[in-house]
Structure formats: structure tokens, C-alpha cells
Amino acid sequence: MTAPAQPPATPDLLYSQDEEDLRSAVRALLADRADAPTVISATESDTPYDPQLWSSLAADIGAAGLLVPEKLGGQGASHREAAVVLEELGRSVAPVPFLTSSVVATETLLALGAEDGPAAALLRELASGARTAVLAVPFATAPAGATALTSLEGTVRGVADAAAADVLLVPTAEGLYAVEASDPGVAVSPLVPLDLTRPLAGVTLTGATGTLLADAGTSAAAVRRGLLAGAGLLASEQLGLAEWCLTETVRYTRERHQFNRPVGSFQSLKHRMAQLWLEVVSARAAARNAADALATGSPDAPLAVAVAQAYCSGVAVHAAEECVQLHGGIGMTWEHPAHLYLKRAKADSIAYGTAGSHRQAVAELAELPAP
């Protein structure tokens, strides 16, 4: 007799006390080291990264090793905790390589399944915060759309955080290579990005040497897993961004007076902010569902990630647009941080796949007619 199928586990969308404690620690650090004037000032340079901020976040708080098992020197936590960190990074648009190094590159290496050898050694270094790595694919690459170079020769454009990386993970037809960014055969050329807090660069390999970490089949699956985690947890960054925009807009419209009344008391503005609040609440549910599915290894994780990205990217853009508009004239100035949030939201909306590509994925995974 065939055993009845078990119903799928109910996702846990709530935050644990440990997650809230982690949030408090990260928020306090960012308030002290990555407030709006500091971030705006940092974007005036080609390399906006603050090494001391990254050291405090990655090593002192231990955020860099959240996804890495304790036996490999990490914290042994999960995607849920990493999502909390990304929510806070979204709230501050801090220029740190957490998403690209501590999530995408780390998840790619974990998917190789090595407990010793060069991949495990690199994981230990990433978990400690001593080094950073990026997956050498365009930032716009969707989880199912990754391509590989034929060999360690050629150019990859639009690689996020490549300028700050110590190691490049390069997918090729032979497999996944770890290439030192300082190798004479590696040239990293900064591009002009829309989002000044997450620089993009072109990576050109000419006679570079690297360490082969895995064969082509294993590498392709690992890259897909890394990009899936990146897309899923990017939704949490978009959630944090949208929450900041809503909170800041409500605060400002309460303080700004016109006709001897707070502008936030005008009915039309109330309706706009109420609608945005509903969108943010829904985005939180979608982002938490994706993080929980990744953390539990749910077979529905690809669907949860696609749903989260299809929805959260639009919410983040809408929240940032409303933030700029409802701040009036000050929202248009370079001195106010609203423009940083709008640029981050627009750049994130095409990162790891557009909302349209994720809707297409939802249709295929749910066996529904494509939109």
C-alpha cells in the first residue's frame, strides 16, 4: 500500500529572537558607520567601499560566515539570518559586498560539496571576512540563464563588486575556476553604474591562471544554486529598501506643513502611503517565504524565489519613486539620500533576472500559461 503524500511544510514567515538580535547589531553598526551623509560622500569616489565597515560586519558580527557550516569556520546559520542582514543593508544602501561574496559566491562554493581542498579553503577565508569573492557573471544573469566562458580567456561585463573582490569564480566549459584578482592576466575595468553604491566592472582574462574547483557539470549546478540564492535574498534587500522609503516618507509628510497642516494629513497622500504600506507588507511575506524555502532546502524554493523577485522588485521601485516625489523639492536634491534608494531599486530590478523573466519562471514551474 502506498503511503499518503505528506503535505508541504508551512513556511515560517516570522522572525526569531536570534534574528531580531542580529538585526539590532547590524542596524546599530550601519547607523554608526553608514549613515546617509557617509554613504553619499562615499559614492563620490570610484571605490565607495569602507574596509573597516566591511571588517566590522563580516568578521566582528560574523555576517560573512552565516551560510558557512561551523566545520568550515562559519556561523552555521541559514538564509533566514542572511536575509535579515540584507534587509538592513537595503535600509542603508551600504556599499558592502555581502550579497555578491557572502551569499552568491559562498553558496556557489558550498554547492560543490567539498569538505577539503581549495574550495573548502576559500570558503574558510570568505567566512572569516579575510577575503571576498565574486561570481564572474553579469549582475543581470537570472538563475537559469548563466553562461560560461570557453576558457580562461575573454571578457565578462557588468560584474557587481568585482573591483573589491580578491578572488573571481569563473565558470568555463572545463569547470569552475578560482582566479586571483591580482593575477597579471586579469584586468578589472570599472563601468559607470546607475547605482553608485554597488559598482560594476568588466573583467577581462588574458592568459590568466586559476585553480580548477570542479568539473563542468558540477560547476553549472553550483552556479545555478548560487544565483538562485542571490535572487531569493535580493528580495530581502528590496524589502529593506522599500521599508526605509515608506518610513522616511511618512516621517517627512508628518513634519512638512502646507496651508497650516501636515501634508501627510491630505487624503490623496494618505491613500498613496496606505497603498504603499500594503505593498510592503506583501513584499515582506514574499521575501520571507523565499528565505525560508532556501533555508529549509524546500523543493519549492525555485518557485518561492521567482515569486519573490517578480513582486519585490516592483515594490522597491514604487516605494523609491514615491519617496522622491512625496519629499517634494528636497527629494530631487543630491544631498538627500532618496536618489540613492531609487538608483539601487532600479538597478536591483534587473539583477539576477528581471521581474518579467521571473514571471516566466513562475508560469513554467506552476505549469500555467505564460504571461
Rank of each mutant, 00 (worst) to 15 (best):
A3G: 14
Q6N: 04
Q6S: 08
P7G: 09
A9F: 00
A9M: 04
D12A: 09
L13W: 00
S16D: 03
D18F: 02
L22N: 06
R23I: 09
S24V: 03
S24Q: 14
V26S: 04
A28P: 03
L30I: 07
L30H: 00
T38G: 04
T38I: 02
I40V: 15
E44N: 06
E44K: 00
S45E: 09
D46T: 05
P51C: 05
S55W: 12
S56P: 07
A58W: 05
I61N: 01
G62C: 10
P69L: 13
P69A: 15
E70M: 08
L72E: 09
G73E: 11
G73H: 06
G74Y: 02
G76A: 09
A77Y: 05
S78D: 11
H79G: 11
L89H: 02
L99D: 01
L99S: 07
L99M: 08
S101E: 06
V103C: 12
V103W: 08
V103S: 09
E107K: 09
A111G: 09
D116A: 07
D116L: 06
P118G: 09
L126N: 11
S128H: 03
L135K: 01
L135T: 12
A142H: 00
A142C: 05
A144P: 00
G145E: 13
T147I: 00
L149K: 08
V156T: 10
D161E: 07
A163W: 13
A164N: 10
D166C: 10
L169W: 15
P171N: 04
E174F: 12
E174T: 06
Y177P: 07
Y177N: 03
A178S: 13
V179L: 01
A187E: 01
S189W: 06
L191T: 12
L194W: 04
L194Y: 02
D195P: 01
T197I: 00
L205Y: 00
T211E: 10
L213H: 01
A220Y: 08
R225E: 13
L227S: 05
Q238C: 12
G240E: 08
A242H: 05
W244Q: 07
C245Y: 07
T249G: 03
Y252A: 08
T253E: 09
Q258P: 00
F259A: 14
F259S: 12
V263S: 13
V263I: 15
V263R: 14
V263Y: 10
S265Q: 14
F266P: 05
M273S: 03
V280P: 05
A285E: 13
G297L: 07
S298P: 15
P302M: 05
V305M: 10
A308L: 03
Q309F: 00
A310M: 12
G328N: 04
G329V: 06
G331N: 03
T333S: 13
W334H: 04
L340V: 05
K346Q: 11
A347Q: 02
I350R: 08
A351S: 15
A351L: 11
G353T: 09
T354Y: 00
G356M: 05
G356I: 03
Q360G: 03
V362R: 04
V362G: 14
A363L: 03
L365T: 04
